[in-house]
């Protein structure tokens, strides 16, 4: 019984932590962060801070 309670508590805390991860993402109207990424082909830096056209950033990975 104690084991079940402990597991339940661990799962609850884990879910709570996931939902409350620090989120420092810029909001609508905020200045665009001054960061750059690398082109996949040649690793050249691509400045993402001053777009000349509206720019969609899609963040993700394979997993």
């Amino acid at each position: 019984m104690f084991k079940i309670l402990l597991i339940t508590l661990a799962v609850t805390l884990s879910v709570h932590a996931q939902r409350n991860r620090v989120d420092n993402a810029p909001k609508v109207g905020d200045a665009i962060p001054k960061v750059s990424a690398h082109a996949k082909e040649d690793f050249k830096k691509v400045d993402l801070s001053a777009p000349t056209k509206p720019t969609v950033l899609i963040f993700g990975s394979h997993t």
């Binding site: 810029p26 200045a31 665009i32 777009p51 509206p54 969609v56 950033l57 963040f59």
Partner: peptide
């Protein structure tokens, strides 16, 4: 996550 950047330097 997804964002759109404007040409005015704002999100």
């Amino acid at each position: 996550r997804f964002f759109i950047l404007g040409t005015d330097g704002k999100i």
